[in-house]
Simulated scan of single mutants.
Amino acid sequence: MKIITITILGLVAGIFYCWSVSVTRGLALLPDKEYILAFQKLNQAIQNPLFFICFFGPLILLPVCIWRNFSICLLLAILSYYIGVLGVTIVGNIPLNNLLETFSVQGAKIEELRLMRAQFELRWNTLNHIRTLCSLASFILTLIAML
């Protein structure tokens, strides 16, 4: 159970880290229309069983770990994951993803494309950096607790 929990937390931290240091940086180089289209496709593609197993796994695994072996580190890991990863995703990233998903680039004027991107990009990236740091903290705290 411990190894599975640590592995899944590492995978989640890695996913968010990769988005922060490569995916969003690459997307930033695209013109507005292509940026929006690419981000829409990426948001659709990440919604798959493998991602969901990793993303939702800690919601079950961390409480089981703390039940079996209580420690302050595990308690902090749960708080970091529930608030900084799950909470930020639900309150921040998902609404932004939904906003972008409902935006149609077909027939959109240059100014509309620019405004949509401006409304989305910086906020989404900032929230993803928070998720990256919180998932990494949860991973490290769980690792410390399990050693």
Rank of each mutant, 00 (worst) to 15 (best):
I6N: 09
I6G: 01
I6W: 11
I8L: 15
I8W: 03
G10S: 12
V12Y: 05
A13Y: 05
G14T: 00
I15T: 05
I15Q: 02
I15F: 15
F16W: 06
F16A: 00
Y17Q: 02
C18I: 06
W19P: 02
S20M: 05
V21E: 11
V21S: 09
S22T: 09
T24A: 12
G26W: 08
G26R: 12
L29D: 06
L29G: 14
P31A: 13
P31V: 08
K33Q: 12
E34Y: 07
I36W: 08
L37Y: 08
F39A: 14
K41H: 09
N43A: 14
N43I: 04
N43C: 11
Q44Y: 10
A45S: 12
Q47D: 10
N48H: 11
N48L: 07
N48D: 06
P49L: 08
F51H: 10
F52A: 12
I53Y: 06
C54V: 02
P58N: 06
L59G: 03
L59C: 05
L59N: 00
L61I: 03
L61H: 01
L61V: 01
L61G: 02
L61S: 02
F70Q: 04
L75W: 02
L76N: 00
A77Q: 01
A77L: 01
A77T: 02
I78D: 02
I78Q: 01
Y81W: 03
I83C: 09
G84D: 02
V85M: 01
G87H: 07
I90A: 15
V91I: 15
G92L: 06
N93D: 05
P95S: 10
P95Q: 11
N97T: 11
N98H: 14
N98F: 07
L99M: 13
L100M: 10
L100V: 06
E101D: 13
E101K: 15
T102G: 15
F103N: 15
V105P: 11
Q106K: 15
G107M: 10
G107R: 14
K109H: 14
K109F: 13
I110R: 14
E112S: 15
L113Y: 12
M116V: 12
A118R: 13
Q119F: 14
Q119R: 15
F120M: 07
E121R: 11
W124E: 00
N125Q: 08
L127T: 01
L127W: 01
L127D: 00
H129M: 03
C134G: 00
C134L: 12
C134A: 08
S135I: 01
S135C: 04
L136T: 06
A137G: 04
F139R: 12
F139K: 15
T142S: 14
T142E: 03
